[in-house]
């Protein structure tokens, strides 16, 4: 396909853009794209794509042991993204995808996040109140165990009361 701007060089950049509310396909060569300001330096995204494609090949090679088994398509019920498309594109389609592909995510996340699979950071203030309380209770229970082990019973009693108060608060919300 030739570049739609100069009609000389082959088009190497293909993308869609909205002009006057209409979706338009654009095909440009590197040079014309640069001159029109359509390409910017430094847009080198970390290539998760290659990483995930590698993973998919690995799964395919491992294969299904039972040749008579129906190949079931793992798909997000909300946005329709299939697991194999997720691997190809490297992007989730919606929040629900995380639940749909849950059983397969750990190895991917471990690879990307240095072995981590569980969030330990911020929790939304408004909608995550219950989660914050649960986390706090878990922390306090660990503290309680340490205190009991060290026979610091007076302090342990205080922590126990704190846990009870939080559990009540959690029930209400």
């Amino acid at each position: 396909m030739e570049c739609q701007e100069c009609h000389l060089r082959p088009a190497t950049l293909h993308f869609t853009k909205i002009v006057n509310g209409k979706k338009m396909e654009v095909h440009l060569c590197e040079q014309c794209a640069r001159e029109k300001g359509e390409v910017m330096a430094g847009s080198n995204a970390f290539s998760i794509h290659n990483l995930l494609s590698g993973l998919l090949n690995f799964e395919e090679m491992a294969g299904h042991s039972d040749p008579f088994e129906e190949p079931s398509v793992l798909q997000c019920p909300k946005c329709g993204l299939t697991y194999s498309d997720f691997i190809k594109v490297g992007k989730f389609g919606c929040a629900e995808c995380y639940r749909a592909f849950r059983d397969r995510l750990d190895p991917i996340l471990r690879k990307v996040h240095a072995g981590n699979t569980v969030h330990t950071g911020k929790v939304p203030k408004r909608t995550g109140k219950g989660i914050s309380i649960k986390r706090k209770i878990k922390e306090l229970k660990e503290k309680l165990q340490r205190l009991v082990a060290n026979e610091e019973f007076e302090e342990a009693a205080k922590v126990r009361d704190e846990i009870r108060a939080l559990e009540k608060e959690g029930d209400v919300s």
């Binding site: 989730f92 995380y98 995510l105 996340l109 990307v112 981590n116 969030h119 950071g121 911020k122 989660i131």
Partner: peptide, 29 residues
């Protein structure tokens, strides 16, 4: 600013995975 926006929108958040993002490289925080 995040807290301020959260009063206006319900963010995609999962107890185990954190803030859910389109790319797996951003999930969590």
């Amino acid at each position: 600013i995040d807290d301020w926006l959260e009063q206006k929108f319900t963010f995609a958040f999962d107890e185990q995975r954190g803030y859910l993002t389109s790319c797996p490289t951003n999930v969590g925080t």
